[in-house]
């Protein structure tokens, strides 16, 4: 059974997403809506990580409580749009694009876990995915919405 693999993957991706949300807030503190909402949305990922960790032992996993105060740097490079990386507006677009993809990845992982939960008939795990998956999608849609909102002014500038 490879449910443990999926759980471990999700634990990692949710932790990274929480870290990324915090980093986004920190890097764009003057973009007030991003600053505040990103921090609101960290709560969901933190809850998810905690819940995944709680399920872990049933699948032979001991998942550690991540240090969200000092998140790991992102695995992808920041400079994805043309520019020398010193332009905070282009950095914002790049950060939101990465956040979107990370949230999409997490959302996909919840999908996978949900499939696994059904095949092993783990109702509790299935309920967990149904609780958490929509929130990952909302994080992803938020990144998309912010990108759509802020990009016209940046691209016209």
């Amino acid at each position: 059974m490879r449910i443990g693999v999926a759980l471990r993957e999700l634990h990692g991706s949710e932790t990274a997403l929480a870290g990324e949300l915090l980093r986004l807030a920190d890097r764009h503190a003057k973009e007030q809506e991003i600053y505040h909402v990103a921090q609101d949305l960290v709560r969901w990922s933190r809850d998810h990580v905690r819940e995944i960790a709680a399920v872990g032992p049933r699948y032979g996993l001991e998942l550690e409580e991540p240090d969200l105060k000092n998140p790991e740097p992102p695995t992808e490079e920041a400079g994805e749009l043309p520019g020398d990386g010193s332009d905070p507006d282009l950095l914002l677009l790049a950060d939101l694009r990465r956040l979107y993809r990370m949230a999409a990845g997490v959302s996909l992982d919840w999908d996978l876990l949900g499939q696994g939960a059904q095949v092993v008939a783990d109702a509790e795990l299935l309920a967990l995915t149904k609780r958490c998956h929509p929130q990952s999608l909302r994080q992803m849609k938020w990144a998309d919405a912010m990108l759509k909102t802020v990009s016209p002014q940046i691209l016209a500038g």
Binding site: E33, V37, D40, L41, R138, Q139, K141, W142, D144, A145, M146
Partner: peptide, 8 residues
């Protein structure tokens, strides 16, 4: 909109 994130 999403009542938490504000996303349309």
């Amino acid at each position: 909109r999403d009542l938490v994130t504000g996303a349309p």
